[in-house]
Amino acid sequence: MSFKPLLGDGRIRARNEETASLQTASWIGSSVVFDSRRWACQEAEIRWTAPHHLIVLTDGGSTSRTSIRTDGKTLYDGQDRPGVLTFVPASAERVGFYRDVDLSYSAVWIDPELALPGLELLRDMPVLVNRSDAVIGTLLRSLRTEMSLGHVPETVYVEHLVALIGLRMTSLEGSPRLAASRGRLSRRKFERVRDYIEANIASDISLSEVAAIAGMPLDTFARRFKETTGRPPYAYILEERIRRAELLLRETGMAIGAIAFRLGFSSQSHFTTTFRRLKGITPRAYRLQFSPES
């Protein structure tokens, strides 16, 4: 298998190349794509343009030389190292030269038309190379870890993660942040959203869906929902699923795998991991507290 970015077009030349795809997933009709890989080669030259914004975290490994150019200007000439970030805005041409490559990386591709808080600021940003941000690094590593465990995070979680990454990325260039609106959701709007979540608890609920139910822009809704409940929407939805799981474990004999499916978890192992993280106990052990004969 030869190295080729998931999105876009261009030219790649490489010598003595080895590559392995570790985890790949997409959400919202491929508006967000995650790609984790290992890439090794003696030497490579890449000229590439993509329709999505690209954010790359170097997870491990190094190069003896990395040189990145755009618009005829050299942006970076040095070495790759673990923990560094690169940002390439949509439609920008990236020209890269690499030598003695042995890297693992996590990449997120973001559709510039995706309507999430702060992402519109990415349109005006330049190419950034070998920057550092502890928050973005932690977010991408956590997503990679979830994927490596076989858990594909839900859409609403990924939307929050991407929005936060986008806002943090703009701060690396000193771009202005969006002004935050204050206030809570009205009682009627909150009840409408709560009822929608309860009725669709087994579905892959997205932030855009619940914001539409409230009749509010995504960023305003997310802030006001957290102000109202003390939790972001994705955490609220997850806790609601676990609350329902507790009820089913206590009061029914439904199989744990069936409960996981009924409540929208991607697998029984994902359900068990999430339940244990939030409740400090596995679903089976929780059930045994109420029905020892189970």
Rank of each mutant, 00 (worst) to 15 (best):
V156W: 00
A40R: 15
L7I: 09
E113C: 07
A222C: 07
N16W: 13
G137N: 09
E246V: 02
I242P: 02
G264S: 05
V33I: 15
T252Y: 11
V33E: 04
T274D: 03
W27Y: 11
A285F: 09
R144D: 10
R243M: 11
R131F: 11
I205C: 05
L185A: 02
W48C: 03
I197D: 00
P233G: 04
Y105G: 00
R177L: 15
E209P: 00
A285N: 14
R243I: 04
G137Y: 02
G150N: 08
R38S: 12
A14N: 08
R182M: 13
L57M: 06
A202Y: 08
T252P: 00
E239F: 11
T86D: 09
L119H: 04
S67M: 14
V193R: 04
T19K: 14
M147D: 00
P232Q: 12
G83L: 03
S106Y: 03
T49H: 09
V129I: 14
L140C: 03
L114K: 07
W48I: 08
T274H: 01
T58L: 13
S294G: 01
F225I: 07
D124P: 00
T170F: 12
S267P: 01
E18M: 14
G150L: 06
D111G: 06
L139S: 00
G183V: 03
R15Y: 13
G253P: 00
G78T: 04
A44F: 08
S21Y: 00
A202S: 14
V95Y: 13
P126C: 06
R194G: 02
E227W: 05
I165E: 02
E45C: 11
A258N: 15
L278C: 03
S148T: 10
T86C: 10
R287M: 05
V95I: 13
P283T: 04
G8W: 05
S64G: 08
D59H: 06
T58K: 10
Q268K: 14
I197H: 04
A258Y: 14
V33H: 02
S291L: 14
I201N: 04
P5R: 13
G61H: 00
H270S: 15
A25W: 06
T274C: 03
H160Y: 05
F190C: 03
T49W: 11
P5G: 05
A14Y: 10
D133Q: 05
K189C: 06
I281A: 03
L22K: 11
G174I: 05
A180D: 12
E209W: 01
T63M: 09
R47K: 14
R277T: 06
M125L: 13
L121M: 12
F265I: 07
V152Q: 10
S106G: 07
A20L: 14
I259F: 09
K4A: 11
I201H: 04
F87R: 08
A25I: 08
E154C: 05
W48Y: 07
L57H: 04
T145H: 09
E43M: 12
S181D: 14
E198D: 14
I136F: 06
Q289R: 15
D133N: 10
Q79S: 12
T49D: 01
R224A: 09
S186K: 12
V32N: 04
V32I: 14
